[in-house]
Design a binder for these strands. Structure first.
Lengths: 191, 191
DNA sequence: GTCTATAACACGATAGAC
DNA sequence: GTCTATCGTGTTATAGAC
């Protein structure tokens, strides 16, 4: 595959991610995607193998980026609170790099076929690592002895919803947002 | 329509909501729904008008419950923090009453047709009221002067994800969970 | 109230011309 | 690399028997 073909393939995947965000994987047809690309549906198949392959590419690449980021964080010697701040920054970074793809990761993962089990494994490992960090924070008396599951659920819900919210803030600074968000999630909102 | 027919209709809607949660509105076919009900697809149309009508019924009834709950909260004389706690309790209550329907409200609202504008109006009004409560809390010095939008985004993300999390906690007490969640969202998690 | 049969159309994907 | 034409199947929904 030459470079021009690779570029066209990436263009298709980017366009697909945008459409998947708007209507979801199942509601987007290959004809929709072709129209958005300015070509006919049959022409898409010169660049991609199937609709399912597009979804695979979008979701797995992001899931692996999260896995790699988490690996770095757990291997550091920082405090638990510092690690939680790094997780917040990781979500802000990955989401701002691929807002549309994050929508597929969050909402269309169940439509994966061959790669479904692999995705679920990555997600479970990620959540396990997240919870270990919280538990270590409680043991070290950095965090209140709240239910670790509820803490992770609350943080992860906010971080996973970033894809809905970032596009509305066109002129945001990732570092500032990550700091602001960490403050709210960790220190709370009351005076 | 007699009572038996009404009951059957409700049964179809309940079953549909469960399937919509698993695969999304677009990926669930009338044949899937019929199979889950133990009948043939054509028989569904003796009880409901269309697939779209099922989605309308699921989403709009929940959206109106949120609107009614918010009306009560904003009319009270309580402090802003007390109002925020009431919002948390409202989400826990509605979500625990209809976990599957909440999935459609969150993920399939864009597939509404005639009622899309009405839904968006209810959602915008809800978010406006939510933000006013936060702003009043900042003015009254009950809340830190953080960005009200980020505060609402963070709280609402967690509350809107409850439908994913509640079913895993089979033996939960709504009042306890609401209190626990309010604590984390309002007071933060650090010592 | 459920069935069989089917209308009318949309879907993902392929074949082969240019 | 894109096109036209088309295959085989799946889709929502209706008609009419029982």
């Amino acid at each position: 595959m030459n470079q021009k073909s690779e570029t066209r393939k990436e263009e298709i995947i980017t366009t697909a991610a945008k459409l998947f965000k708007e209507k979801g994987y199942s509601a987007v047809t290959m004809r929709d995607l072709a129209t958005a690309m300015g070509i006919k549906a049959a022409s898409l198949y010169n660049h991609i193998n199937s609709k399912q392959d597009i979804l695979n590419t979008i979701i797995i690449s992001i899931a692996e980026a999260f896995t790699a980021g988490m690996e770095t964080i757990i291997q550091s010697e920082d405090s638990s609170i510092e690690k939680l701040k790094q997780i917040v920054a990781l979500h802000v970074k990955i989401t701002s790099n691929n807002t549309n793809g994050m929508a597929s990761l969050n909402n269309d993962w169940m439509h994966l076929e061959e790669q479904l089990d692999y995705y679920l494994q990555l997600r479970n490992d990620y959540e396990d690592n997240f919870q270990v960090i919280i538990q270590q924070g409680i043991v070290a008396n950095e965090l209140k002895p709240n239910n670790p599951e509820i803490i992770m659920f609350s943080m992860l819900s906010t971080l996973r919803s970033l894809y809905l919210w970032l596009p509305k803030k066109e002129d945001f600074n990732p570092a500032d947002l990550a700091m602001n968000l960490s403050e709210i999630l960790i220190d709370g909102i009351n005076t």
